[in-house]
Design a protein around this nucleic acid. Structure first.
Lengths: 338, 338
DNA sequence: GTGAAAGCGCTAACAG
DNA sequence: CTGTTAGCGCTTTCAC
């Protein structure tokens, strides 16, 4: 292992000078700097982050904690998150990935991280967030809306995205609109539900309680809840699903029942994971800019770590409606076309 | 931050004793040990891994490098890998996740890791593996078969899994069997292709070159290659797809053509990602025990890091055929039932 | 069994 | 601009 002392010897300077040169200190003459950097490259020098960390009180490690890592369907969920984060991270940082579900708080050594990103999918990880706060570990919560104004939070504008989607459905003639959401009282659930309701209200459409179902964002939940809807005396013509997984499950239920999307029932999802454009039919869905969210969150976290004053703790990014083939135009007063 | 010196003071011993006690050294009296550990817990002491690492020449960090992280469809691909690895890792280690595609070799500081796991999906990452070897960084390659007997490698028995799947198809009466694989000359491609061929040979079935197509394991490749097959004068009755993504793309192509699975064409996939059991129809596929593979790979890597002599550098785990609804029974000499 | 002292590789006063 | 010195928190000889 080659150290700054080796370089110092080779360059005929002190190791301090080498340290400064390598850290691009303005105190060092440009020429010395260049020479030292050259030698460093020649010797294949790489800094020892344990040593750097020890003196700098830094860890050069960011923690990414996922809640229910296994559930998030989106093939790209983790991949997008990770690549978004790396986009914002310089080479000095490594990214440690862990699941909140399996981590034992008492065994968790937060000191290992300079800061933590929480990829939150449900209120179930609230205890984890509370713990981070208690331990005064810098962190940012991504994905799930957090009410508390003090908690740095990067989210998508779910409500607006859903409203846009429902507006689109209504513009195509849909009047009987159902919703399969997440668990009651979860913020993202409420956000998305709010989006549906506001759209309905705006259009002056009645709200049928039987059309508002509670799931848990899993494939199974989509299947199950769709069956529930299918058992109703009057079917909805459009079902908005809280996420793509739910939509995939719902699609399956509809096909098992011998019905068709969008002929019998139209479907809209949320997330826009890569597979859904290859479904039959390709799913119309709300695209969530997850990668950008993670990138923003990382920038935010880095500022927090750097002790910079952060003016904007809440960041909200816009979604995009991806129109594909799972929503059909409906004739006024008819919803039985097959 | 509470250090061993703080504990030493509180316990009325030297910091050396504390260090030994905390590391469970046999040199320390049990009573002293207990007392010290108690105080440590009370003071909420957590070790500083930078300091530990500096003196121990350890990093307490394992690197996980993915090739084509974005392509791997399987929603659970990353998640399974990560949780499998954590299964084998003790609390001392963090897991750093990165994509091979985006990493710049010249900027990569391998010294940061005690060892590296390569989640390899194609020959494209060979240069990365070569680099690891050149740098003498302990590593294990997971998922892709590596010929070189010196390279530690954990894989699934793809060939056997595919053979089992094709045997199953043949037992159901299929005679015209096609294959959409990965790029030519990729080891996993060849493995799986070999599986198909051996099964065909065993059954004394002719091999139709037009039925053996080359893709790249993406959704798009499945769609594209299936279209190719669909344009043939004579259709296969069963298409084996090199992975689930390919199968999803193929399914889409078949539906666009107005045909049906399994009525017109039967489909088999590979991987068994969570979504495929919710497809229409649910996909029969070969389950790859990715999580276990990663766990095994991590154990192997840990031994390598520990400098233990490793007797078994090549580990191969068995796959399981998941029979669902995408393969139908075919009548002898008929393949036009719809 | 326990303690004193040295040192891992690096940065940061402080001097010059 | 550059060098000397001290010290980050921890483990490890070497004494006792």
């Amino acid at each position: 292992m080659v150290t700054i002392k080796d370089i110092a010897k080779a360059a005929g300077v002190s190791h301090t000078t080498v340290s400064r040169a390598l850290n691009n200190s303005s105190l060092i003459k440009n020429e010395t700097k260049r020479k030292i950097q050259e030698i460093a490259k020649e010797l294949d020098y790489v800094p020892n982050y344990s040593a750097k960390g020890l003196v700098n009180q830094k860890k050069y490690l960011i923690g990414l904690f996922f809640s229910s890592m296994r559930k998030g369907t989106s093939s790209s969920f983790l991949a997008d998150s990770i690549s978004g984060i790396h986009e914002a991270l310089d080479v000095n940082y490594s990214l440690s990935v862990e699941s909140i579900d399996t981590v034992v708080l008492s065994e968790l050594n937060l000191q290992r991280y300079d800061g933590v990103l929480v990829m939150s999918q449900s209120d179930e990880d609230q205890h984890f967030i509370d713990y981070l706060r208690e331990k005064k570990c810098p962190f940012v919560v991504v994905n799930r809306h957090i009410e508390d104004p003090d908690i740095p939070n990067v989210v998508a504008d779910d409500a607006a995205g859903v409203t846009e989607a429902i507006d689109y459905g209504i513009s195509l003639g849909h009047r009987k609109i159902a919703y399969i959401g997440g668990k009651e009282n979860f913020r993202s659930t409420n956000e998305r539900k709010k989006g549906v309701l506001s759209s309905l209200k705006k259009a002056g459409l009645p709200i049928n309680d039987a059309f508002f179902l509670t799931g848990d964002y899993t494939l199974e939940s989509g299947l199950h809840n769709m069956n529930q809807l299918l058992s109703l005396p009057e079917l909805p013509t459009l079902v908005f699903c809280g996420n793509d997984d739910t939509a995939i499950g719902a699609l399956r239920a509809i096909r098992i029942a011998g019905l068709h999307v969008p002929q019998t029932i139209s479907l809209i999802g949320f997330d826009d994971s890569p597979v859904v454009s290859y479904l039959n039919p390709p799913l119309t869905t709300v695209h969530k800019p997850l990668k950008q969210m993670c990138e923003q969150a990382t920038f935010l976290l880095l500022s927090l770590i750097g002790g910079e004053s952060v003016d904007q703790k809440k960041i909200q990014l816009s979604t995009t409606l991806k129109i594909r083939e799972s929503v059909k135009t409906v004739m006024e007063n008819k919803n039985k076309r097959i």
